[in-house]
């Protein structure tokens, strides 16, 4: 059985997202070739395109960062929210980002620069990236959170976002985010800017 309880502290942190408690963390700068906060996501990172995982780059990690975790959440979907699109953890503290197109097969190796990293379970029950699929015409924001951890946690593969948050509680020393949006239109005009 997967645990149904979330520690209150973590739940509060999630609800507050990057508004209320962001200042408690050392701010990490998150960037991506092709994605920007407040801009639409390229189609290839959605099911209207190849639905591959986007590349991420981060800077300004806390000095004693040992490990990194990445989660993509949509706070405008899910029952209860958020709907989770992507969970990656056990990323070496030396990594400076995630390359594009992480594998969709459990037995496929991770790229060398993030060796040891594993993917957790998304809202569809699969341990891979799945991009935005908001209802037609609706604009949703997609929070790509990067967490800096002060320990090398050897977490098992397949954790959900909730389970990951429980496991890293107390180890988070920095956080940053990039928040692009996506809106689906009629098929032939859905292409990215």
């Amino acid at each position: 059985m997967k645990s149904r309880s979330v520690p209150i502290l973590v739940a509060a942190m999630l609800v507050g997202a990057n508004i209320v408690h962001a200042q408690e963390y050392h701010p990490i700068i998150v960037e991506s070739p092709g994605m920007q906060t407040g801009q639409t996501m390229p189609r290839d990172y959605t099911p209207d395109g190849r639905n591959i995982s986007p590349p991420l780059e981060w800077r300004n990690l806390p000095e004693d960062t040992r490990q990194i975790a990445v989660v993509c959440e949509d706070h405008g979907a899910g029952n209860p929210p958020p709907w989770v699109h992507w969970v990656v953890y056990n990323i070496p503290g030396t990594a400076t980002g995630l390359p594009e197109n992480l594998p969709i097969y459990a037995n496929a190796p991770m790229p060398a620069e993030i060796a040891g990293a594993v993917q957790g379970e998304n809202g569809w029950g699969r341990s891979i990236y799945r991009g935005p699929a908001p209802p037609l015409g609706q604009l949703h924001n997609y929070n790509f959170f990067v967490y800096a951890l002060d320990a090398e946690l050897d977490l098992p593969p397949g954790l959900t976002q909730q389970e990951l948050m429980e496991r890293i509680e107390g180890h988070v020393i920095g956080r940053g985010a990039i928040v692009p949006f996506y809106r689906r239109g009629p098929m032939d005009t859905a292409s990215a800017p």
Partner: peptide
Amino acid sequence: TTDQDSVLIDLEGGSATGSGA
């Protein structure tokens, strides 16, 4: 085959529904 699997995952999860196809 990788893209085929990716498409089937999108079908299975309902993500292809709103594509207008």
